[in-house]
Simulated assay, not measured.
Amino acid sequence: MAMVAARAGVSGQTVSRVVNDSPRVDPDTRVRVERAMSDLGYRPHRAARALRTGRSQTIGLVVTTLATVGNSRMLQATAEAAAHRGYALTVVTAEASVADAFDRLAEQEVDGAIVLNEASALVPSAARPAGLRLVVVDAVVDAVAEGDLRAVHSDHAGGAAAATQHLLDLGHPTVHHLAGPADSFAAAERERGWRETLLAADIRPPAVVRGDWSAESGYVAGPALAAASAVFCANDQMALGLLRALDDAGRAVPADVSVVGFDDVPDAANYRPPLTTIRQDFTALADRAVAALVAEIEGDAVADTSIIPTALVTRSSTAAP
């Protein structure tokens, strides 16, 4: 570090600020220090820094599964957001329980953890090691507010409302709903947005048809929804299965049935027909979760709750009846 400071013509404290990504460094000075670091082959020593700061510069990610599209995309986005802030990421699956996952993370001396989606619902009732800082993604905010946790989630209800209103504005008399699992926060919020939008329009919500997020469950739900004029699906994967089921039933999309999904997965634009859907910003969601956790670790102020906006993306799977 002293050699870097001498080569860049700055103090050792300035080099330390650059290494720790402090905003209190002039841009030109930062470039000069980074060039000196590169020329000398200098890299911060993570273990030495942990001894000095009492932090491992590592955060955990707790999931129940990585098989779902949302969780796998969140893993990628979280890893990138953590690396941007100088933190490594370790992933644990809550195979037996979330409490066991927390214990494994504590053994690895992580500075904190982010809990994703299905695992988040298990946090309020799970024992956790003292001092383990947590940010939960997709959880009941009231449950989180009772503890020293931070919550981040997409505007699931708002997105569902936009999807439902889009179909009503096209002239459909009602909108059916292919919902996600009953124990999912995201599924419950999307169902709430759909239901409240119909009730606000003085329309009695039809009976919910429930899937498990998979395309197969969307296909299985097809017969129950084949006579519908419009269907809002709680995710794009179930919408994909439904599109196939409707085709098998001789129902054309969107001529006979309009379909809207949720997530805007990369393949949604290449469905047949291209899928109208609600876009979740997984990059912003992960970045907000990591920012909240790092702020908690480093003692900075952070808001208790963050809600990331969603957006309607209109494609060819919806039309007037």
Rank of each mutant, 00 (worst) to 15 (best):
G9E: 07
D21C: 00
D21Y: 04
S22H: 11
R24W: 14
V25G: 08
P27Y: 11
T29P: 02
L51S: 06
R55F: 02
L61S: 06
V63E: 06
N71P: 08
R73A: 05
A79F: 00
H84V: 00
A88H: 11
E95C: 10
A96V: 15
D100M: 00
L105A: 08
E109I: 13
D111V: 11
I114S: 01
V115S: 05
E118L: 03
S120G: 10
V123R: 07
A127T: 14
L132N: 09
D138N: 15
V141W: 06
V144K: 01
E146A: 15
A151I: 02
A157K: 03
A161E: 12
A162Q: 14
T164F: 03
T164K: 01
Q165A: 11
L178H: 04
P181G: 08
F185R: 01
E189S: 12
G193E: 02
R195P: 00
T197N: 01
L199E: 15
A201M: 04
D202G: 01
S214T: 12
A215K: 04
S229K: 02
S229V: 01
N235V: 03
D247C: 04
D248I: 07
R251N: 09
V253M: 07
V265Y: 09
P266E: 14
P266N: 11
D267M: 11
A269P: 01
R272V: 15
P274Y: 13
L285K: 02
D287S: 09
A289Q: 08
A291N: 10
I308Q: 06
T314G: 02
R315L: 10
S316W: 04
S317A: 05
A319S: 13
